[in-house]
Design a protein around this nucleic acid. Sequence first.
DNA 1: TTGTTTGTTCACAAAAAAAAGAACCAGCTT
DNA 2: AAGCTGGTTCTTTTTTTTGTGAACAAACAA
Lengths: 175, 175
Amino acid sequence: MNKQNLPTFDPLNPLIFTERMAQILNEKQKELIEKIGVIHEQHGMQPLMGRILGLILVIEEAEVTFDDIVAHLNVSKSAVSYALNFLQLQRFVIYRTKPGERKRYFYLDIEDWDQILKKELCNVADINSFFKEVIELRGNAKPEFNNKLKDLCEFLEYLKEEIPLMFERFKKNKS
Amino acid sequence: MNKQNLPTFDPLNPLIFTERMAQILNEKQKELIEKIGVIHEQHGMQPLMGRILGLILVIEEAEVTFDDIVAHLNVSKSAVSYALNFLQLQRFVIYRTKPGERKRYFYLDIEDWDQILKKELCNVADINSFFKEVIELRGNAKPEFNNKLKDLCEFLEYLKEEIPLMFERFKKNKS
DNA sequence: TTGTTTGTTCACAAAAAAAAGAACCAGCTT
DNA sequence: AAGCTGGTTCTTTTTTTTGTGAACAAACAA
């Protein structure tokens, strides 16, 4: 089913769907959106933002309009406006427009998905920078502890170097 | 300076320090504790918990008592109790006791720091499991998107396999 | 010009998270 | 037995986060 087709009306769903709107979500999809939302929350993201990402992943079109989000996720326009601005700022989503329409179609910038991973992996880098500061600042009362910390840092450095190489090896392996 | 020495009294600091207490923190240390707290918050951890981890990392002793936390972080006993229980449950900290004392000395379970990393890296695994669910559920309207998603998953799988090997290589390299 | 679509902004409300505080308790000391 | 020490538990308060709704606005359409 694509956007040209009118979605079948679900009498159990109180929302009014218009012909512009993306497909109606089934239970599995709704569940998965929530789950994706929750893991994003657990990683420090705001609830609605996580669910927007879930929505984009789950719907067949792989893109949503402002109104799709309002309707499917049943939230206010202002919340959506705020969330989308944030997600764009963080480069999680981008939008395109379609000829003759003013509406924005938001989608995941998955084209270079290695970016997504790099973002995840720079968490590790963050942690490392703090460990380094810690080591700088620590006294010498617990040399064993300090050494463990240094080992950890070293490994993180190693990881940071190796991961880009892994990207390359993977790509080579594929082609 | 160690716990046997009475810390010098800081007239700007309203807290009353007793002879039991760990060193008085300097500004750099306090700052770093807050920073470590914030990055943990951003990763979904509660503020106090993050700062407790920061405190343990930063103080020379590399271990804290319940009262150290109350005094240095200036929070209530109940908050500390809750936070410590959580941190123990998540295996972030463990405690030991000292002969003749009832007090618990909490410290980071950094002995096998690879655990800490594995915890971080299993986030990646989490994400992968959700991507897999997404792929299962997705229709075929956007094959390019689906393929990108599959590539991403494949790479994550590859990463999961390779990372333990990297641990080994690193250890071998060290010894 | 008036209305419609596609949003944004801001002041506020609701809900959830975090922390406080008081009461309690077990084990040890005196 | 009465008082400390080293906490725990429960209820309440405070703070922060998240979301709402009304008003506004730009761009286009009738």
